[in-house]
Design a protein around this nucleic acid. Structure first.
Length: 236
DNA sequence: CAAGTACCTGAGTAAGCATC
DNA sequence: GATGCTTACTCAGGTACTTG
């Protein structure tokens, strides 16, 4: 999913630095976890938050003042898909992440990073630009989350069955990704929120590809999950 | 449902600033 | 004054979303 800046909690503005978003994503990690984790990039695990901010915030070349500088993406497996992934990695059938040992939790998180990198390869390909071939051409950082919490907008909170901030039950594995609008060479702009869905434009006497087909990316990511883990989708 | 609006794209130009 | 680097702005056409 590509998040519109206005819908991104705590980060209504992605036109300047990414500090607010990085801090928002770190909040959940302040709680005690039995394992250590932080951001990951396409090539590295355990990237410090300071590095994330530096890399994203120094990748603004050629972008204008009022332009979006980065985007927030998320990868949200269904509970069924999460259960399948955990079964594939650990051989265990669980309904809560905490039912796994610490080693198993780490293995699942590692595999989710691997899948996320696959999704980012597909993201890069989906722009259909000559110079952008894979996740290596992007500047992005991700973070695996194992929990979700209720918000005031949730039905359960409105009906008084849960309080805002309470942990949601079940498998809540998901991944947040901050991706720079510029590619790593800072010469190609990649905007997933473009109006156009991948079409050519005449600019400076050359045909230029503009836009991004969101639904195509989504379905290709779903296909990748199926082929990587032998998942049989029960519904579309 | 037609018309209007918002937004994307990269080369080229120009301004701003630091350093020699 | 010269040089190099960084940042900001302009340009036109195409598309999807929004508005009336």
């Amino acid at each position: 999913k590509v998040h519109k800046p206005v819908n991104t909690p705590c980060v209504c503005d992605n036109k300047d630095r990414c500090r607010a978003l990085v801090e928002y994503l770190l909040k959940e990690s302040l709680e005690d976890k039995p394992y250590y984790d932080t951001f990951f990039s396409h090539e590295e695990d355990y990237v410090p938050p300071v590095t994330v901010m530096q890399k994203i915030d120094s990748n603004h070349k050629k972008l204008m003042k009022g332009d979006d500088k980065f985007y927030m993406l998320s990868i949200n497996p269904s509970q069924d898909e999460a259960a399948h992934l955990i079964r594939k990695v650990t051989g265990k059938q669980v309904t809560e992440f905490e039912q796994l040992t610490v080693e198993e939790q780490e293995k699942v998180i590692h595999e989710l990073k691997n899948y996320s990198r696959n999704c980012m390869d597909l993201y890069a390909e989906n722009f259909r630009r000559e110079k952008i071939k894979s996740g290596k051409d992007l500047v992005y950082f991700g973070r695996v989350e194992t929990e979700r919490h209720y918000r005031n907008s949730d039905e359960e909170v409105k009906e008084g069955q849960a309080k805002s901030g309470d942990r949601k039950p079940g498998l809540q594995l998901h991944v947040h990704i901050i991706v720079s609008r510029n590619d790593v060479t800072q010469t190609v702009r990649l905007s997933p929120l473009a109006r156009s869905k991948g079409s050519f434009n005449e600019l400076n006497g050359k045909k230029v590809m503009v836009g991004f087909e969101h639904m195509e990316w989504k379905s290709r990511c779903a296909d990748r999950f199926i082929s990587m883990y032998g998942y049989k989708a029960t519904h579309k």
